[in-house]
């Protein structure tokens, strides 16, 4: 694997390799074993958009592998503010590092970065397009928490039109034979082309609904994402949809007893805080898988 830009570029065996390596990394982390395989290597974290979990977990992953991290989370302090192009920024940064992690508001920016960089590039999220490392860690989390992925009924709820993680996740889950239930308010549905592509490529049945009750009843896993306000060209449109969906304790009375709820966080109002203490809430457990999965990705890319 030269770069990790889109889940669409990965074959099932690539994903399996990352998940298996993440397993090994998690066991090693738990045992307290010191890993120094990245000693002397530098990862550049280029965050053109805000991030908490993705940036910190990449940084932690590299440090746990014995490497170092450089980078920025505010492009205003770099020459980009003076009008430098992304291509020139990448051609400069690659001279200082061995691996580049990039998050950018423009779709396709990581692909462009990879095309001009001689060092491997990892996409940490580009606009509404892709967030492949989040999808890989979510896949790993489901496997760990439910013991399997195949034949699970996995409901994806929320702003499926704009959430980049959903674009990556739907592909990943279909690749591993999950039954997909897509629940979104009117106007926030995932693009038809994407659903069609996944159906044809993986021969999966995909159930789509605007009715949260209908979708939730059958689910083994409920994956929720927030309204992606920053992706709307008209803020008024986003405002109108602010309370369009919410998971509440009342709603969960309809759910299977062993349902687990995941969320890539941050959350706005779509997850009632009263469900944090229920057995269903697994979104804070989900976070812990970020480090071993990203260690596995770095390991595979730097081999």
């Amino acid at each position: 694997m030269d770069d990790l830009i889109s889940i669409r570029d990965l074959k099932r065996e690539d994903v399996e390799l990352i998940l298996n390596t993440a397993d090994e990394m998690e066991i090693a982390l738990r045992s307290g074993k010191i890993n120094t395989e990245m000693r002397g290597r530098v990862l550049a974290n280029l965050f053109f958009e805000p991030s908490t979990r993705t940036r910190f977990s990449f940084e932690t992953a590299m440090l746990k592998l014995g490497g170092s991290v450089i980078g920025f989370d505010d492009p205003k302090i770099t020459s980009i503010e003076k009008g430098e192009t992304l291509s020139d920024t990448i051609k400069t940064v690659e001279k200082y590092c061995d691996l580049i992690v990039i998050r950018h508001p423009k779709e396709g920016a990581p692909r462009l970065a990879a095309s001009v960089s001689s060092k491997p590039v990892i996409n940490a999220g580009d606009g509404s397009n892709q967030h492949p490392t989040q999808a890989l860690l979510d896949l790993y989390a489901i496997k760990k928490l439910k013991g399997k992925i195949k034949n699970l009924n996995i409901a994806l709820l929320g702003d499926l039109r704009h959430a980049r993680v959903m674009k990556s996740l739907i592909y990943c889950l279909a690749m591993f034979d999950a039954n997909l239930i897509l629940i979104s308010p009117m106007g926030l549905e995932i693009e038809k082309e994407m659903v069609q592509e996944v159906k044809e490529k993986f021969n999966n049945e995909i159930f789509q609904t605007n009715d949260i009750y209908a979708g939730l009843r059958m689910a083994d896993v409920l994956y929720v994402c927030r309204l992606q306000k920053e992706r709307f060209s008209d803020p008024y449109e986003a405002k109108k949809l602010e309370n369009a969906y919410k998971v509440t304790p009342d709603l969960l009375k309809q759910a299977k007893d062993d349902l687990i709820i995941l969320h890539s966080l941050p959350r706005l109002g779509e997850l009632d805080r009263r469900i944090d203490d229920t057995k269903h809430a697994k979104y804070f457990d989900q976070i812990q898988f970020g480090v071993p999965v990203r260690m596995a990705i770095i390991h595979q890319m730097m081999r």
Partner: peptide, 25 residues
């Protein structure tokens, strides 16, 4: 799409359903 902001040659892959931008997908 980044191609509308950076000096880069656009690239589309011809697929059955249409033309896919290689950058923004």
């Amino acid at each position: 799409c980044i191609t509308n902001y950076e000096p880069v040659k656009t690239r589309f892959c011809v697929e059955e359903r249409g033309l896919r931008c290689w950058y923004c997908e």
